[in-house]
Amino acid sequence: MSEYVLSIRARIGNDLLLLPGVTAVIRESDRFLLARHAHSGLWSLIGGGIEPGETPEEAVAREVFEETGARVRVSGIVGAYGGAPLEVVYPNGDRVAYVAVAYHCRLLGRASPDLDELLELGWFDQEAIAALPRREWIDAVIADVARSLNAGH
């Protein structure tokens, strides 16, 4: 947790906190890179919160590096997501609602999971993702990517 969020939590406790976030859509052919998170056991796209003074593009690159040790090239926005599907209650009781911007990213190196945050990384096609225990909001992101590919964008 960032110093910024810690300072807010010191004042509001576990109450709901609305935070800006980013997520990386890293794709090779028809497969997407997903991470299984240690705090929930669920699969999701790689991402996290934007720090004060940081651009969203810087945040997504930092988050991917922190969670996988790999650098990325950010190449565009997939879309913006929020609402009830992006609300999370962490094991310590902290409630967070994210508004996340998803970015197309190209992996520039080998990715391996930061075992403090992640249990594992994996490459999955859209059909396999639908069968995973996952954060279901990623379905909308992946569907948006598939639609843009089918439309030739």
Rank of each mutant, 00 (worst) to 15 (best):
I77D: 05
A128R: 15
L18N: 00
R95L: 11
T23N: 00
A24E: 02
R36V: 01
S44T: 04
L17S: 01
V78T: 07
E63P: 01
L121N: 05
Q126I: 12
A130N: 10
R134D: 01
D15K: 12
R9P: 05
P91F: 09
A10K: 10
A97H: 07
R135S: 03
E51M: 14
L19A: 09
G82N: 09
G13Q: 00
V101Q: 06
D116M: 14
R135T: 02
P56T: 08
R73P: 02
V96C: 01
L17F: 08
W137Y: 12
E51Y: 15
V5S: 05
E87A: 11
H37I: 07
L132Y: 10
I138W: 07
A111W: 15
W43E: 01
V89L: 10
G109M: 12
G53T: 15
R36H: 06
D30I: 04
Y90M: 00
D94S: 11
R95M: 13
A100E: 03
P91I: 06
V89T: 15
T68H: 15
G49V: 11
R110G: 13
A97I: 05
L121Y: 02
A80P: 03
A24Y: 04
S40D: 02
L149K: 15
F32T: 02
L107Y: 07
L33D: 02
W43R: 09
G13T: 01
D144E: 05
R73C: 05
S2C: 02
N150T: 00
A80L: 14
G21D: 01
D139L: 07
A143C: 08
V22S: 06
R27A: 08
A24R: 06
A38L: 11
V72L: 15
L86P: 03
E51F: 15
S40V: 06
A61C: 11
E120D: 11
A10R: 12
R134V: 03
A70S: 12
V96K: 11
G76H: 13
G82Q: 05
V60E: 06
V78C: 08
V74G: 03
G47P: 02
P20L: 08
Y98K: 14
S7E: 08
R110L: 10
A59N: 08
L115G: 10
W43L: 07
E3I: 09
L33Q: 00
W123I: 12
V25D: 07
A128F: 06
V72C: 12
A70P: 07
L45D: 02
E66C: 11
P113Q: 10
V141C: 06
V5Y: 05
H39Y: 11
T23H: 00
A24H: 04
G82S: 12
A38D: 07
L42T: 03
V60D: 03
T55W: 15
S75V: 14
S44I: 01
A84Y: 06
N92C: 12
E57V: 15
N14G: 00
A59F: 06
E51S: 13
L115E: 13
A35M: 09
